[in-house]
Nucleic acid binder design. Sequence first.
RNA 1: UCCCCGGUAGCUCAGUUGGUUAGAGCGGGUGACUGUUAAUCACUAGGUCCGCGGUUCGAGUCCGUGCCGGGGAGCCA
Length: 478
Amino acid sequence: MTQSADSLPVYSIRDLLAGQANLQTQVTIQGWLRTRRDSKAGLSFLQISDGSCFATLQVVATNELANYTDAILHLTSGCAVRCSGTLVESQGRGQSLEIQASAVEIVGWVENPDSYPIQPKQHSFEFLREVAHLRPRTNTFGAIARVRHVAAQAIHRYFHEHGYYWVNTPLITASDAEGAGQLFRVSTLDQMNLPRTDKGDIDYSKDFFGRETFLTVSGQLNVEAYCLALSKVYTFGPTFRAENSNTTRHLAEFWMIEPEIAFADLDDLVALAEDFLKYVFRAVLSECPDDMAFFAERIEPQAIKRLETLIEQPFQRVDYTAAIEILQQSGKKFEFKPEWGIDLQTEHERYLTEQHFNAPVVVVNYPDEIKAFYMRLNDQRDGEPGRTVAAMDVLAPGIGEIIGGSQREERLDILTQRMQAHDIDLEQYSWYVDFRRYGTVPHAGFGLGFERLVSYITGMANIRDVIPYPRVPGNAGF
RNA sequence: UCCCCGGUAGCUCAGUUGGUUAGAGCGGGUGACUGUUAAUCACUAGGUCCGCGGUUCGAGUCCGUGCCGGGGAGCCA
């Protein structure tokens, strides 16, 4: 609560609906008009949103107000207003409280009401992406913004309460072979006049950092260093991938959460993933009930139900080898035939999580051949045609892979063998190998795509709609 | 990057086998009516049918091409 110019207390709609002001007291709210409904009996109903919560507040303005005819009757969707008056119980249905206005000040008009893009009606998400600067004024994008915030806060809170330290890994990196995707180049060289070496190559020794640099595709390698000193750490920050991916679940710029735990194996990691996800889902359900009710009503009917179910049930867990057998015995015709050694295709993941288990599934112990060099090599086990690594993916219905992680290879000799097999430059990664020389311990970590998490929570089908300003191939507008 | 689908009013869309002056709902304006709930009713304004080229007596409609958007696949979180 603050004081307005005429010294009436200014409230957020959220606080008023939470009962922070008494009935029959004078209050002020500030926000944007959603709709205006007139009664020629001489009063208008103004539906005001200030984004503090999903609900709007109704302001009743009568023709006794000095600016009623000249101004209030000309208000359109999107106008910014400051409304003062008496907080009362509503005489009409549909809302509990309303404000009987003693003053309605128009702070900002809408210049062209006939072409203002955000109308009180259903818009397509495709259209709203083209007005990404105005879409937060809609119910849907306001709700997404609040859920996104609450989820982010819950993530930090979970780790903080469980003794993890947040580590800020660099966004600019010189590692060009992390194996997680194509990189965006970071350079200050004059592109019209590039310095060249004797051989005719671009001379990056003349570049800002004196070498080739890129935007990070993962903080994992860097955060392992802090894991092997602070025991329990995590990253939460932006990540960049220059893949030419045009799907509903890929962004060129997205936010990733990467916990890393020392003295831990794959079982510990799977347990963390489950406990962590359930904590975040519980927080969103309890802190954003109105927003979640909206998603269940308009976006995804199962939005609330599936989170509640997920919180109650233990995660399904299946070995890669067993998953392949399930797929083979499903009787379903897949475009890519499931065979031991292949990576699980989208159609396979969808079958497992949406049909066979109908719940989030953790697939563990993938073939060595298809996974990254830093994943820990398992001992050969009966029934497995080849060697596997201690990797795990969490698959969610409708989204697919939401988490990918592994126990890390802590044995020096095996790690260096694997790096050579993967053509990794040992010289460049000597600092990473050092951890295995100086007090090495079993450790494990995973990466969680924050936008994929928000997609799953809200039921929003396209990942471009759960980040304020999506960056995708061919589009970096706003 | 590959495969499909689409682009008509501010928005959502319709538009017949190619045929006169391209329509509706919502939104805007004006008016009527009502403690209203995406209010209702009447009237009204509003169009480079994505761009370029072609076929045709005639193209929103058919063909080619470019741009943009969407869905799916791959890559992955």
